[in-house]
Every structure is written in structure tokens, then in C-alpha cells.
Design a protein around this nucleic acid. Sequence first.
DNA 1: TAAGAAATATTTGTACTAAAATATTCCATT
DNA 2: AATGGAATATTTTAGTACAAATATTTCTTA
Lengths: 173, 173
Amino acid sequence: MAIHTPTPSNKTTFEPQHDQVREIIYLIRRLMQAGSLYTKELNKNYQVSAPQLNCLLVLYENGPLPPSRIASLIMVKSSTVTGVIDRLEHKGLVKRMRNSPDRRVINIELTDAGKTLAQNAPPPIQQKIVDGLKRLPQNKMESITHNLQLLVHLLDAQDLEIEHPYEEPPPPL
Amino acid sequence: MAIHTPTPSNKTTFEPQHDQVREIIYLIRRLMQAGSLYTKELNKNYQVSAPQLNCLLVLYENGPLPPSRIASLIMVKSSTVTGVIDRLEHKGLVKRMRNSPDRRVINIELTDAGKTLAQNAPPPIQQKIVDGLKRLPQNKMESITHNLQLLVHLLDAQDLEIEHPYEEPPPPL
DNA sequence: TAAGAAATATTTGTACTAAAATATTCCATT
DNA sequence: AATGGAATATTTTAGTACAAATATTTCTTA
């Protein structure tokens, strides 16, 4: 997603809040860049990217899983997961097992190396947020939640379908 | 950035706010998916992706620009811009001009087709946010700004360098 | 003026992401 | 049992994104 510095655009003339809108968009952009930068950093220090690490962690926490289930848990499409697993398998961190009675299903298992890495893994990016949030008073957190919901709303929530929606289906909007 | 459903992880045991942290992370993830989904939708209806559209728009608003300047305005690296321009040029929407006295510099110009598209372009994703935000009372907007700043802060702002930081350099943190 | 540093654009290599098409297997209905 | 439809995983194709390496040109400074 490439949000650039908003500019007085073709049609619309901007009202007083212009600068604030500008800053909000800028902040969203930075939020997103935080993710990709964290991935790069991970890769340097641990030879795994953030999606790869997330994949290892859900396997560590849930035991062997088929790709479709992994996709659902880490919220990407299964065609994406295939590639992530390819790379993890190539590094000897997971292996594909065709051990289900249903022979369409492949189970992904952690190898010993994969388990070790999952145990000693650096915190996934969530942890950074979690650690920060813990230092905030409760009402701040409520405020953040509320405002994020508002933003997601603005971005047209009904377009945001993912393969299998979270865990419990997301609250109706 | 792949944020998965947060889980009681390796080391950390979670405190009462657990569910709220979980929701915040989920919301951030959705915010980010909104972007990529919007890109896909754009591509279907207008044959340009969001980065491509943003590129066209900054050219429309600022006149011919070198790739480095475009990179700065749409906040991506110039190696990324090269590819975006390649695709736009291939579609006949822009052309590369070597018309600067400094012969390292290449200027990207809109073609007539590019201008037309920029004029009739669908709103970039920002517009969606803008339109939504306009319906909100001023104090809501302030609240959103404040909370986003907080979040960006948590994600370790000093790691978030970009090639040329925005316009005025972002506020010191 | 010559050598080295800086700026600009591009190339190369890797990863992620998703839609669409494909192959395989399973299941239900006839 | 056979056909058609659903589920599962993969391949293909295309786009975004970035770091690192490269080539070219300009600037600096010695």
C-alpha cells in the first residue's frame, strides 16, 4: 500500500482539518512501514522473515497444521503460505508430511531445528506493541481500540474479507 | 507485514488487557489489508495499481519529476519507483525524458493519456479516509491523530527512516 | 587537472502477496 | 458405480518492496 503525502487533489478542495488528515495518513503509512522494516531486521539476525516466524510460532503453539489452517491463522492466502513453507522447508525448519487419512491434506511439522528456533525466537512484531501497550493506562488502550475501529470502518470494512475470518468471526460492523 | 492472531507466546504470560491487545493487533492488520485490497480493485477497474496511481497523481500535481523525487513523495525507495515507472511507461501513461542540464537526472512526464487518467482517476485510498474523516467532529480527529502517534511510537519510531523524510522532517520523537 | 566522493538511476536478487488456473482427492447425489 | 461439485494444495503470473551492487555523471578538493 503506497500512501503518499496527501495533496489537494483533482476534485476536492480541502477544509480546515486538511493538515490533520494529512498527518493521519502519514501515520498510517508509518505504521505499515514498521512492519516491513521489522521483517528485514529479523531476517538479518535470525534468517527468518516475519511471515516465516509467524508460521513457526503458530506451529509451535498448535502442533502440526495443514497449510490452509496456517493461512487462516496468520491471515494470508494459502498460495502465499505455500511459498513461505517452501522457504522454511528449504532451511530445514519444517517438513511436509502426508500423514492424514484425507490425502488432500498435508501437515506441516516443525523439525527439531524449527522447534528450537520457535522457542528462542525473537518476539514477533506484536510483542513490541504488547510491551508498549502494557505501560499504558487502561483508558488509553480503550481509546486506541476505539479509534482504530473507527479508521477500519472508514476504509470500508466490508471489502476486507480474508480467507477464514479470524477465529470467532469479526464483530459485525 | 504478517501479524497473526496473537497468542499467549513463548515467554510472556498475559495480563487482563490481553483481549484488547489482541483486538488492536487485529485492527492494525486490517488497516493494512485495506490498502492491498484497494490496489487490486483499482487494477481491475482502471488498469493501474495504487502505487501507479499515486505516481500519476504526484506528476499531475507537481509537473515532471525525477524518479528520486517521486520516491520521496510517495514514500518508497527509488529502486521500487523504477519498476512502477517501467509499467506506467509500458502502458503509455508516462515517458522518460533526459532533458535536464544534469545528465544524471531523468524527468518523468505524463503523456496525454496519463494526464487524462490522472484527471479522471478514482480517488486514491487517502480519499476514502478523507471522506470518512470529514464526517467526524473535530475532537474525534484529534483523538485519532493522538492515538496513531502513540502506536507509531510503540513500534519504535527511530527504525522508521525513509529515504527523504516527508516534507518537513517528521516531528522529533 | 586528476582522484575520489557524492548523487542519480538502474539492475539484480530475494521475499511477500494475491488472483487465477490446475491437479488431486474426497464427497454427495443420482 | 458414475458424475459433478467441493475441498486442498500447488503453480503461474503479476505487482510491490527493498538492499546491495553497478554505471554514469557531477562535484570537490587536493
